[in-house]
Design a protein around this nucleic acid. Structure first.
Lengths: 220, 220
DNA sequence: TCTTTATATGACTGCCGGTCATTTATATAA
DNA sequence: TTATATAAATGACCGGCAGTCATATAAAGA
């Protein structure tokens, strides 16, 4: 219970409530990084945050809405980190590598991205979902602008690149989300299968193919 | 309860047990197609199959192991359907379109593929998991051979294509796995975002870019 | 100091996946 | 044909889950 954060006073003003919500989110993220999505329980989170389960539901609609919020925050955080590392113009391979490295460095972003549509977005109210989509739209626009400069492609193509990188990231990091099978006990054929789906090279190889494809389409 | 299948006699021989397992799987698949992954419950499945929850666990390790089996069967079924529609040589765009169409036509395959690593493979025994990987390896080999002919590329490149198409399929069909937001009530910007992630064109566009990229690498 | 407000509580509900001692159908032996 | 052995099937049971709600109470305002 090292991450226990006792919350004493009641939150009355809007600012205090926002502050409390944010504190809970911080505890939740640490807890999530420890145990992962499936083992995460609202009762445990309450215990760690120093309050009671019912109270959590004053601050979040559902478990999924809490995770949707964590996802949004991790998206923005990663987006800034990625753009911060894009120094001037880059070959598409370097662009892809930086994108992959920064995404993986954020322990929250990829696991939630992978679960977004088919787990998290269910059990969230429509207005909340719409708000979340707007956050996404904004980030895509910001990323497209930075990518347009980095890759020296028109904005329309850069936007296509950004959207497609998201798609590819989800597919390529799939193997990392399985149970850890690093044992030497596995049959050789299975080991080499796992090796061939190593997410880093898989992502970068195909990112380059896609970016070069998009670039070629831009020219006449 | 229309899909109720009364099971009367006990299964004693190995064949009878295999037969019963298969019957349960058929009921499970129909049930899954109705309610989806999250709402699927073992107790309901038992009721529909005309037996009791405890009995299911004589035939399946866990809920996830049951889904892993459904996934394997849907993979083989789709693989055959896809190969069956590959007539001679094809432009990469047609290849990608046929792949996408046959995958989507099988209602079970894509939803389970998307959940494979980060949901289904947890809570399954290692030996069972290894067996499943072998099924996958076999299907990749079969698909690579057929793809080598259809795309007129060497087998090594065809194998790369097949593996990459799987990655892309997962990423591109993500949007289809979210809650249905077909309402006209949505803000225009969100509607156009959804439209821009329409999975069919998204998949085909990028499949072509990747296949052509792989083909170009094979050249010199 | 008293009243009002709404945050925080914790007991509660219904459901889940999974287990296991017991029952009982069935194959085999007598 | 009947008795016995085997293991398939049962259903009561377990702990834990997300989410709810009447109640208690801390704190702001009169």
């Amino acid at each position: 219970m090292e991450s226990m954060v006792a919350i004493k006073r009641r939150a009355r003003s809007a600012e205090q409530k926002a502050q409390r919500r944010q504190t809970v989110l911080q505890v939740a993220e640490r807890y999530f990084l420890e145990v992962g999505y499936e083992a995460f329980s609202m009762a445990q989170l309450a215990k760690r945050a120093g309050l009671v389960k019912g109270t959590l539901y004053l601050y979040f609609e559902t478990r999924e809405e809490l995770f949707l919020t964590l996802y949004e925050q991790s998206l923005v955080r990663w987006s800034r980190a990625f753009i911060g590392q894009l120094s001037g113009q880059l070959p598409s391979k370097n662009y892809a590598q930086v994108l992959y490295d920064t995404a993986m460095a954020d322990g929250t972003f990829v696991p939630l991205l992978v679960r977004l549509e088919h787990v998290i977005e269910h059990n969230v109210s429509i207005p909340r979902l719409v708000a979340s989509k707007r956050v996404f739209i904004d980030q895509v626009a910001i990323l497209a602008k930075a990518s347009s400069l980095a890759l020296t492609v028109p904005l329309a193509q850069a936007s296509e690149v950004v959207k497609t990188m998201g798609v590819l990231l989800i597919g390529a990091t799939r193997a990392d989300q399985g149970p850890s099978l690093n044992n030497e006990l596995l049959p050789e054929e299975v080991q080499s299968l796992i090796a061939s789906f190593s997410s880093g090279p898989l992502f970068v190889r195909n990112a380059v193919r896609i970016i070069e494809g998009i670039r070629a389409e831009a020219g006449p």
